[in-house]
Lab assay of single mutants.
Amino acid sequence: EINVTSHGEEQAKHWIELAKRMNLDVEVEIHGDKIIITIK
Protein backbone atom coordinates (compact mmCIF):
# COMPACT_ATOMS: atom_id res chain seq x y z
CA GLU A 1 0.00 0.00 0.00
CA ILE A 2 1.39 3.39 -1.03
CA ASN A 3 0.26 6.74 0.35
CA VAL A 4 1.01 9.80 -1.74
CA THR A 5 0.27 13.34 -0.64
CA SER A 6 -0.07 15.51 -3.70
CA HIS A 7 -0.12 19.28 -3.73
CA GLY A 8 -1.35 19.60 -7.27
CA GLU A 9 -4.05 18.16 -9.44
CA GLU A 10 -1.63 17.33 -12.27
CA GLN A 11 0.59 15.32 -9.95
CA ALA A 12 -2.46 13.55 -8.53
CA LYS A 13 -3.70 12.64 -12.01
CA HIS A 14 -0.27 11.25 -12.83
CA TRP A 15 -0.39 8.88 -9.84
CA ILE A 16 -3.97 7.82 -10.57
CA GLU A 17 -3.15 7.06 -14.22
CA LEU A 18 -0.08 5.10 -13.16
CA ALA A 19 -2.08 3.01 -10.69
CA LYS A 20 -4.82 2.32 -13.24
CA ARG A 21 -2.24 1.17 -15.79
CA MET A 22 -0.90 -1.26 -13.20
CA ASN A 23 -4.45 -2.46 -12.34
CA LEU A 24 -4.21 -1.26 -8.74
CA ASP A 25 -6.99 0.10 -6.57
CA VAL A 26 -6.81 3.80 -5.84
CA GLU A 27 -8.53 5.78 -3.10
CA VAL A 28 -8.47 9.56 -3.29
CA GLU A 29 -9.15 11.86 -0.36
CA ILE A 30 -9.16 15.62 -0.62
CA HIS A 31 -8.24 17.68 2.44
CA GLY A 32 -8.24 21.33 1.50
CA ASP A 33 -5.33 21.85 -0.88
CA LYS A 34 -3.84 18.42 -0.22
CA ILE A 35 -4.83 15.38 -2.24
CA ILE A 36 -4.10 12.10 -0.49
CA ILE A 37 -3.89 9.09 -2.76
CA THR A 38 -3.79 5.55 -1.38
CA ILE A 39 -2.69 2.88 -3.85
CA LYS A 40 -3.34 -0.74 -2.88
Score class of each variant (00 low, 15 high):
residue 32 G to Q: 08
residue 12 A to E: 13
residue 40 K to H: 04
residue 20 K to L: 15
residue 34 K to D: 02
residue 39 I to P: 01
residue 8 G to F: 15
residue 25 D to R: 14
residue 15 W to V: 13
residue 4 V to M: 09
residue 20 K to V: 15
residue 20 K to A: 11
residue 6 S to H: 12
residue 23 N to T: 09
residue 39 I to D: 00
residue 27 E to S: 13
residue 28 V to W: 05
residue 31 H to E: 09
residue 10 E to S: 10
residue 4 V to R: 06
residue 29 E to D: 04
residue 36 I to G: 01
residue 26 V to C: 05
residue 12 A to C: 15
residue 15 W to E: 15
residue 7 H to G: 05
residue 33 D to L: 06
residue 36 I to N: 02
residue 34 K to A: 06
residue 26 V to S: 01
residue 6 S to R: 07
residue 25 D to F: 12
residue 38 T to I: 10
residue 39 I to A: 01
residue 35 I to S: 00
residue 20 K to P: 13
residue 15 W to N: 08
residue 9 E to R: 04
residue 38 T to A: 02
residue 30 I to T: 02
residue 31 H to Y: 08
residue 35 I to C: 04
residue 2 I to K: 10
residue 1 E to L: 10
residue 16 I to W: 12
residue 6 S to T: 12
residue 24 L to E: 01
residue 15 W to R: 12
residue 12 A to I: 15
residue 17 E to M: 02
residue 38 T to L: 04
residue 28 V to N: 00
residue 36 I to Q: 02
residue 18 L to K: 02
residue 29 E to L: 09
residue 31 H to P: 01
residue 15 W to A: 05
residue 25 D to W: 14
residue 22 M to S: 03
residue 34 K to V: 11
residue 14 H to N: 05
residue 35 I to L: 04
residue 30 I to N: 02
residue 40 K to D: 02
residue 35 I to K: 00
residue 26 V to N: 00
residue 23 N to I: 15
residue 8 G to Q: 09
residue 3 N to S: 07
residue 25 D to H: 12
residue 39 I to S: 01
residue 29 E to N: 04
residue 7 H to Y: 10
residue 1 E to A: 13
residue 21 R to W: 15
residue 25 D to A: 10
residue 8 G to P: 08
residue 17 E to F: 05
residue 19 A to W: 09
residue 34 K to L: 14
residue 22 M to R: 01
residue 1 E to N: 09
residue 33 D to A: 06
residue 6 S to F: 08
residue 11 Q to W: 15
residue 5 T to L: 03
residue 28 V to A: 01
residue 24 L to M: 04
residue 25 D to C: 13
residue 1 E to P: 09
residue 18 L to P: 05
residue 1 E to Y: 08
residue 1 E to R: 09
residue 17 E to V: 04
residue 7 H to M: 11
residue 2 I to V: 11
residue 11 Q to A: 11
residue 5 T to V: 07
residue 30 I to Q: 02
residue 28 V to S: 01
residue 14 H to E: 07
residue 13 K to M: 10
residue 30 I to F: 05
residue 27 E to V: 13
residue 31 H to K: 07
residue 1 E to W: 10
residue 17 E to G: 03
residue 40 K to F: 05
residue 28 V to G: 00
residue 10 E to D: 12
residue 21 R to P: 14
residue 40 K to V: 04
residue 38 T to K: 06
residue 5 T to D: 11
residue 12 A to K: 12
residue 28 V to R: 00
residue 16 I to N: 05
residue 39 I to C: 06
residue 15 W to Y: 07
residue 7 H to W: 14
residue 21 R to N: 08
residue 10 E to F: 05
residue 25 D to S: 12
residue 6 S to Y: 03
